[in-house]
């Protein structure tokens, strides 16, 4: 089950960790229908639409379907969110929460979607 939800550009994850034209290229690795994974998907989608607007691409990868991508991205635990930044990709793993996502992207509530 590989869901792809894109704001602007859509990228094939098999190309590897290369930044695309979208400012925020994200990959979310999940494990099947595990509760933490389901929560993570909801949370990330909500977060993206609120803060990143149309300026992102999010690929959701289920490791049970596509282990090769996980292997290539060196993702061994779920959920893991990867932000393909220009220089090095950043990883966020575990049962992250709203505040973790803000930290991860270097945002704060003030600069966020309240605008």
């Amino acid at each position: 089950m590989t869901k792809k939800k894109t704001g602007k550009g859509r990228k094939n994850p098999k190309r590897g960790l290369k930044p695309s034209s979208a400012i925020f290229e994200l990959r979310l690795y999940i494990a099947d229908h595990e509760i933490n994974s389901r929560k993570a998907v909801e949370l990330v989608q909500k977060f993206c639409s609120r803060y990143l607007k149309d300026n992102y691409s999010l690929t959701i990868i289920d490791v049970f379907q596509d282990y090769q991508s996980a292997l290539r991205d060196n993702v061994l635990v779920a959920p893991t969110l990867i932000w393909l930044k220009k220089d090095t990709p950043a990883f966020l793993m575990g049962r992250f929460e709203w505040s973790d996502l803000l930290d991860f992207f270097g945002l704060s509530e003030a600069t966020g979607g309240e605008k």
Partner: peptide, 8 residues
């Protein structure tokens, strides 16, 4: 951050 699974 917190709990994760080893399933991948």
């Amino acid at each position: 951050s917190g709990k994760f699974s080893l399933k991948p």
